[in-house]
Write a protein that binds this DNA or RNA. Structure first.
Lengths: 113, 113
DNA sequence: GCAACATATACCCATATCGGTATGCGTCAA
DNA sequence: TTGACGCATACCGATATGGGTATATGTTGC
């Protein structure tokens, strides 16, 4: 089974640092493959492969421009990730306190759910 | 090389659906391993392994409670993810418009799809 | 058509990953 | 101490991944 397919899963797509770099770079504007590869120090095939993953999960869109293929950001797919993490927002401020209180609760009453 | 180690990388840690489930479940309160495994339909070793990954990136903390080991959420590590995706917030509202304008700028025509 | 260029894909390799089963280790109760 | 329980880890197998090189596909210009 190995890991779930990166395809069709935004969380997996952005798990790769270089793909995050690509997305970040595309915020500044659309770019053809070779340019992306150069700016990020990737080989052309390397860039193409990462772009394919991003394309398949819908985070980038491509269109032909003569010999080139220009990639542009389509960040809508990142929204679910932002919202998912946002669901933990109130926890990352006082994780410790919360943990302690829960621990104490558990100590005396083994309540599950 | 394969993928970058999941260890010490929160993005990778949450790329796995079951690990996200674990985190979500822990929002409701701390839990021992077996309980987590049961509620999520995982084998005990399976749960332990996912918990290990989460522990190594600091998303959960564990403490001994007799025979049991109770895991609790430490969501602080999710904040960077939330912020990173937040950096794209203004794009996912009008991705298309933005894309379109770029398209028009780059070459006066040509939008696929 | 042909050459040059841009990109995608095919392969191959080394490795990491998830899942399962078996097992080791620590803890508690009797 | 012994046995049951809770959990971690070792090990194995199947597969996916990232990276590199070679090559196929497609486009442009001559």
């Amino acid at each position: 089974m190995a890991r779930a397919a990166t395809t069709s899963d935004v969380f997996n797509a952005i798990a790769e640092p270089q793909r995050r770099d690509i997305l970040a770079l595309l915020r500044a504007g659309d770019r053809p493959v070779t340019e992306l590869a150069q700016e990020l120090g990737l080989t052309q095939p390397g860039a193409s492969k990462h772009l394919r993953v991003l394309r398949e999960v819908g985070l980038v869109r491509d269109r032909k421009a003569g010999k080139q293929r220009v990639y542009g950001l389509d960040a809508r797919g990142l929204r679910p990730v932002h919202e998912w993490t946002g669901g933990f927002e109130r926890f990352w401020n006082e994780s410790f306190d919360r943990l302690d209180s829960y621990v104490r609760e558990l100590e005396q009453t083994r309540q599950e759910e």
